[in-house]
Amino acid sequence: MGASDWHYHVPYQEDLGAALEELRQRVFLAGDYYWVRGDDRLSEDERRPRPSTLDELWADEWTQHSGTHSILDVFHVQREDEVPEICAVRPVTAEEARRAAGTDRLTRDHLPAIQDLARERWYGRCAVLHDDRGTPREIYFWGWSGD
């Protein structure tokens, strides 16, 4: 199948980890992810209904290998000073923002400039986006995952 890109906008909150967890719950409950065991190419014997919890989803070996091609494939937000870790989200640093977009107060207009900051499969990024007055308004999560 190959990797898929994904991107989401959520209302701003100071706790990026809480924002990620709320987003993951929303995506899971909406069923807005690839469920490998529901693929039409599988035989009836191999198909399974969607899991009822995230723990059940990730207990499935096929999901562990293929992923969900969504935000569900990343599990936590790293601190800026941590070494990038697979299945995690790293915030865009002020230095990265200035280098890519010429400012550390990113807006939606800057998204094309920062897209390439998420280049690796199974990694996510996030950026706080501001309004015209410089007030944080939303968090943008994006990345690549899945096999």
Rank of each mutant, 00 (worst) to 15 (best):
residue 17 G to Y: 05
residue 18 A to R: 14
residue 18 A to C: 03
residue 18 A to E: 14
residue 18 A to D: 04
residue 20 L to A: 08
residue 21 E to H: 03
residue 22 E to W: 01
residue 23 L to I: 04
residue 25 Q to W: 00
residue 25 Q to R: 11
residue 28 F to D: 04
residue 30 A to G: 05
residue 30 A to M: 07
residue 30 A to K: 12
residue 32 D to T: 01
residue 33 Y to M: 02
residue 35 W to C: 06
residue 35 W to P: 09
residue 36 V to L: 02
residue 37 R to V: 00
residue 40 D to V: 10
residue 40 D to A: 11
residue 40 D to K: 02
residue 43 S to M: 08
residue 43 S to W: 14
residue 43 S to I: 00
residue 44 E to L: 08
residue 45 D to M: 09
residue 45 D to S: 15
residue 45 D to G: 12
residue 49 P to I: 06
residue 52 S to Q: 13
residue 52 S to G: 11
residue 54 L to A: 06
residue 55 D to M: 04
residue 55 D to C: 02
residue 60 D to P: 05
residue 60 D to F: 00
residue 61 E to T: 08
residue 63 T to Y: 02
residue 63 T to C: 08
residue 63 T to K: 02
residue 64 Q to L: 04
residue 66 S to L: 10
residue 66 S to C: 12
residue 67 G to M: 00
residue 68 T to A: 12
residue 68 T to W: 04
residue 69 H to V: 04
residue 70 S to V: 00
residue 71 I to H: 03
residue 72 L to G: 05
residue 74 V to G: 01
residue 74 V to P: 00
residue 75 F to A: 14
residue 75 F to Q: 05
residue 76 H to W: 13
residue 77 V to N: 02
residue 77 V to H: 03
residue 79 R to M: 11
residue 80 E to Y: 03
residue 81 D to G: 05
residue 83 V to N: 08
residue 84 P to K: 01
residue 85 E to I: 07
residue 86 I to N: 02
residue 86 I to V: 14
residue 88 A to P: 00
residue 88 A to T: 15
residue 90 R to C: 13
residue 90 R to G: 14
residue 92 V to E: 04
residue 94 A to G: 07
residue 98 R to C: 13
residue 98 R to E: 15
residue 101 A to C: 13
residue 105 R to C: 03
residue 105 R to S: 07
residue 107 T to C: 05
residue 108 R to L: 11
residue 108 R to S: 15
residue 108 R to K: 12
residue 109 D to I: 04
residue 109 D to A: 15
residue 110 H to N: 13
residue 112 P to A: 07
residue 112 P to F: 11
residue 115 Q to H: 15
residue 115 Q to S: 06
residue 116 D to N: 13
residue 118 A to I: 02
residue 120 E to K: 09
residue 121 R to Y: 09
residue 122 W to P: 14
residue 123 Y to M: 06
residue 124 G to T: 08
residue 125 R to L: 05
residue 126 C to L: 10
residue 126 C to Y: 10
residue 126 C to W: 05
residue 127 A to K: 09
residue 127 A to N: 06
residue 127 A to L: 07
residue 130 H to K: 10
residue 131 D to N: 15
residue 131 D to P: 12
residue 134 G to Y: 08
residue 134 G to L: 11
residue 136 P to D: 07
residue 136 P to Y: 03
residue 140 Y to P: 00
residue 140 Y to I: 05
